[in-house]
């Protein structure tokens, strides 16, 4: 099985461990991820705040490239890239004049039939209906994570149909359940970490993250699981400062969902590069029971 793969800039740089893990997980499940040739930046939130037309046109080129290569599905692990691409597809499909305007300047024309999947939808498609449970090597016992979805998997600035509940999504919980992990219910699973505000409006972002971390800690979680490279980076790299501000000694490793999946598939910590977190995530995993 072949699916087009859009890594995005973040997965090629600061979060390239997520790229490595994603490829390994899908290879294990028998899926060949084909990186879209010569893909460009999706523009992220910055394009939306700077230039409306480009915010739609930049992802449109990537969609055109994937469609010209004959793919019917793209998987996009980065939440920001996923949101921008799916919104671009829906807006352009509803607006023929815009489609014509964009297509006049790109070589591989945007058609708009391709399906855009986030990593949870792609995993559900590839290993849903209990297939994941059968294909893993180990069950993970003794981990108490909270699942953190962030903004961009469920909330869109345009009409987008989503497969999960908007306010209380369950896809990640269900996936972890099939690895034998008991997840903790909490209030902040779709709250915002501030994203780029961590750099350009630090105080705001730290306050947002403090709320997320204190709820997770108070509910007895020992780690956070997420799918968004921006959320992971923010909660991971700023955690020391936030916890000092709120007077908390505890630290929670922030895992990508692919790291726990990889562990259950029998991959090692080194292989998955989990040792590259700001808050050490290896100790907790070493103590785990893998059955």
């Amino acid at each position: 099985m072949q699916i087009a793969y859009y890594p995005g800039c973040s997965l090629k740089q600061s979060s390239n461990l997520y790229d490595i893990q994603t490829r390994k997980i899908f290879a294990y499940l028998g899926v060949n991820l084909q990186e879209i040739n010569d893909w460009n930046c999706c523009g992220a939130t910055s394009a939306g705040k700077t230039n409306d037309f480009m915010a739609l046109a930049m992802p449109a080129r990537n969609i055109g490239l994937a469609e010209a290569a004959g793919f019917s599905e793209i998987v996009i692990p980065c939440s920001a890239c996923y949101l921008r691409t799916i919104v671009s597809k829906n807006v352009i499909n509803d607006n023929p004049a815009l489609k014509k305007k964009i297509n006049s300047s790109i070589k591989r024309k945007f058609i708009g039939d391709i399906k855009i999947l986030n990593i949870l939808e792609a995993l559900e498609k590839v290993a849903g209906n209990g297939k994941l449970k059968k294909s893993i090597k180990y069950k993970i016992k003794g981990l108490n994570p909270v699942c953190y979805y962030g903004c961009m998997l469920t909330r869109f600035p345009y009409n987008v149909e989503i497969s999960d509940n908007v306010e209380n999504p369950q896809a990640m919980e269900n996936m972890l359940k099939s690895l034998g992990i008991h997840t903790i219910d909490w209030n902040y699973k779709t709250s915002c970490c501030g994203a780029s505000a961590a750099i350009n409006d630090r105080k705001t972002s730290l306050n947002l993250m403090a709320k997320i971390l204190s709820d997770a800690i108070q509910r007895g979680a020992d780690c956070i699981v997420t799918t968004c490279p921006m959320c992971q980076m923010n909660l991971d790299s700023n955690q020391d400062e936030i916890c000092e501000n709120i007077g908390c000694d505890q630290r929670l490793p922030v895992y990508f969902i692919t790291e726990l999946l990889g562990m259950a598939m029998g991959m090692s910590i080194q292989e998955l590069q989990i040792n590259r977190h700001f808050i050490d995530g290896t100790q907790l995993l070493k103590e785990l029971e893998l059955k």
Partner: peptide, 23 residues
């Protein structure tokens, strides 16, 4: 808040300039 504008301008321009954003 000028920093907000500077951030998004720099990010967007980098993306268009090189096709990909270099952090």
């Amino acid at each position: 808040i000028p920093k907000v504008k500077h951030f998004h301008d720099s990010f967007f321009k980098s993306g268009v300039r090189w096709g990909r954003v270099n952090e």
